[in-house]
Simulated assay, not measured.
Amino acid sequence: MRSTLAALYAALVLAGLGAPPVWAQSGGHMMMMPDEMKWTDVPSLPPGAKISILEGPISEAVPFTFRLKFPANYQIAAHWHPAIEHVTVISGTFNLGTGDKLDNSKTVALSAGGVAIMQPRTPHFGWNKDETIVQVHGMGPWGISYINPADDPRKK
């Protein structure tokens, strides 16, 4: 009896922590090599950034995953997102900081494998020296709101 209850408890814990809901929504597995990713411009970020959407759509209330490729010497002004954002550095070094204004001296340098988890509506900013690729995932819809509206490239 005790082992049956333990097994049931373990199964419930694993069910709660295990397979993400996207598996049920995707209808199957997806595998992709980096050279198969389609990169496009990102109107909501300063010119030069490219996006490859791996899972989404990012505009709906579903899990999303995308990669961003930033050219050398790229900066993203202070902004926030409506939902939690998980960022993993794939290559290069991405410098992230929190606050209402981009300040290169107040950032943490995240190298490949580094992770940042930004809570909803947390003002933050980023920059890099060399080409950098990051992977972003979370629950949509994804959006970006700039602290200073003049920094929003969609309004230029």
Score class of each variant (00 low, 15 high):
42 V>F: 07
55 E>G: 02
108 V>Q: 12
83 A>H: 06
136 V>F: 01
48 G>T: 09
152 D>E: 04
30 M>A: 15
40 T>M: 09
31 M>N: 01
4 T>P: 01
4 T>E: 12
75 Q>M: 11
136 V>P: 02
86 H>P: 00
127 W>S: 04
127 W>D: 00
141 P>Y: 04
147 I>H: 03
12 L>Q: 12
86 H>E: 03
102 L>H: 01
70 F>N: 02
73 N>K: 15
20 P>E: 13
120 P>S: 11
56 G>T: 12
91 S>R: 07
64 F>H: 11
109 A>M: 02
133 I>P: 02
141 P>S: 10
47 P>I: 09
37 M>T: 09
2 R>I: 14
54 L>N: 15
50 K>I: 12
116 A>R: 03
75 Q>S: 15
84 I>Q: 09
43 P>T: 14
12 L>F: 10
60 E>S: 12
21 P>E: 04
98 T>E: 08
129 K>S: 13
115 V>H: 06
101 K>Q: 11
101 K>T: 14
4 T>W: 00
23 W>N: 13
101 K>S: 11
142 W>E: 01
146 Y>V: 06
150 A>S: 15
61 A>K: 12
50 K>P: 13
5 L>P: 06
5 L>K: 07
32 M>C: 07
70 F>L: 07
120 P>I: 14
125 F>C: 00
97 G>S: 05
129 K>M: 09
143 G>T: 00
39 W>I: 13
76 I>E: 02
47 P>H: 11
67 R>N: 14
73 N>V: 06
8 L>F: 13
20 P>F: 13
33 M>K: 15
143 G>F: 00
155 K>M: 10
17 L>W: 02
77 A>P: 07
37 M>W: 11
